[in-house]
């Protein structure tokens, strides 16, 4: 009340930021210790985090935020390091796919050692539910990151666990060394590489089905890939409750080919905790689409002047109707009345 801000921290933020540039309340400072290319496009970043950070469950991700050209930009990334690294040294590793034409990820490769960024609390509920039961993990591409964290964190191996890792050859398989070492060390763990250049997807599906009796499945990879496997498994007697998967769109921005597919665009509008799924007309503003589906977002001028309809875009990309400029894929605020959908969206009204 005294500072007209929701908290005194916010009131003193300009002073705090003067002392510690880039400081954000509710976030934790993380210092980059080193970075290392895993493959041609996967970069592993090793951060040391302030001890206040509450820790994580393997499989979870964090939102990484830093300032670039005056603006805070953020993206979620899965933690790929084992729990022990955090517990013993207060460090975590993120394995990030660098999209050379992207807005965010190339900047990760420009971060200097010692650079300070902000990370969120660990988020997400993709976790190894029954570590004592037999399980099959299936990961594709950069979907390996949360899976690697789970497997590398496992201390007491009680049942056989297999990992099917689909990638474009061993040279493009991030974290492969760590996983191979685990396989040599741990007889209950088997690692199978599935080369997407030489091996059709059906082969992998058949291997999985052959392996499927009484097992938990954990899938992480591009949405299309997971869908195929999910269908193949459930068609062959696997109960859907046995399959857990990570919404991969949240881990890494939707690939570029999705941006041109405007036929089946949907948005989830979240208001006061309830989510409404809406099919979007790509020719219209998000405000018009929302209203046609009976939603009543706040609005004013409907021409981008008054900022009454600003709301949080959680994920997805929009185009500014006035300038044609494309937004990022990450979390940011947008004006509904002048935003046109480009990809699938999640919006908090």
């Amino acid at each position: 009340m005294l500072g007209n801000q929701s908290s005194l921290t916010l009131y003193f933020l300009p002073l705090l930021q003067h002392i510690a540039p880039g400081f954000l309340p509710g976030q934790y400072r993380a210092r980059l210790l080193y970075r290392q290319w895993q493959t041609a496009d996967m970069l592993k970043l090793n951060f040391s985090i302030s001890g206040r950070w509450p820790g994580f469950v393997p499989g979870q991700h964090v939102v990484l935020t830093f300032k670039h050209n005056g603006r805070y930009i953020s993206r979620p990334f899965s933690i790929c390091s084992p729990l022990s690294l955090w517990q013993s040294q207060r460090q975590i590793q993120l394995c990030c796919k660098i999209n050379r034409n992207g807005e965010f990820t190339p900047l990760l490769n420009q971060l200097k050692n010692g650079a300070v960024v902000n990370i969120s609390k660990a988020q997400g509920n993709f976790a190894w539910q029954q570590p004592a039961a037999a399980a099959v993990f299936v990961a594709a591409g950069s979907g390996i990151t949360p899976v690697a964290a789970m497997l590398l964190s496992q201390r007491h191996w009680l049942a056989p666990v297999s990992l099917f890792y689909r990638c474009r050859g061993a040279e493009n398989a991030a974290l492969l060394n760590d996983l191979q070492q685990l396989a040599t060390r741990q007889p209950l763990f088997t690692l199978t590489l599935s080369d997407s250049r030489t091996e059709p997807a059906e082969t992998l599906q058949q291997q999985l089905i052959a392996n499927s009796s009484n097992k938990q499945f954990y899938l992480c990879g591009p949405a299309g890939f997971m869908q195929q496997i999910h269908t193949a498994l459930t068609n062959n007697g696997v109960n859907a409750a046995q399959i857990r998967q990570e919404q991969f769109g949240l881990v890494i921005p939707a690939p570029a080919e999705h941006t041109t597919d405007t036929k089946q665009l949907t948005a989830s509008f979240i208001r006061a905790g309830t989510s409404t799924q809406v099919t979007l007309n790509p020719q219209q503003s998000l405000l018009q689409s929302a209203e046609q589906h009976g939603l009543t977002p706040r609005f004013g001028c409907r021409m981008g002047v008054c900022f009454q309809c600003v709301c949080d875009k959680v994920s997805g990309q929009v185009r500014d109707l006035r300038s044609g400029a494309l937004s990022s894929h990450g979390t940011e605020q947008i004006q509904l009345c002048v935003s046109q959908p480009v990809t699938k969206l999640v919006i908090k009204l």
Partner: peptide, 27 residues
């Protein structure tokens, strides 16, 4: 994209509520 400097979050040192101001003035 700064939580402190966002049109939807900012509240100022004046009797007028920021939301009311945005409706009457901005709009």
């Amino acid at each position: 994209n700064d939580p402190m400097l966002h049109s939807r979050r900012y509240e100022w040192d004046i009797a007028c509520d920021a939301g009311s101001w945005q409706r009457t003035h901005n709009f």
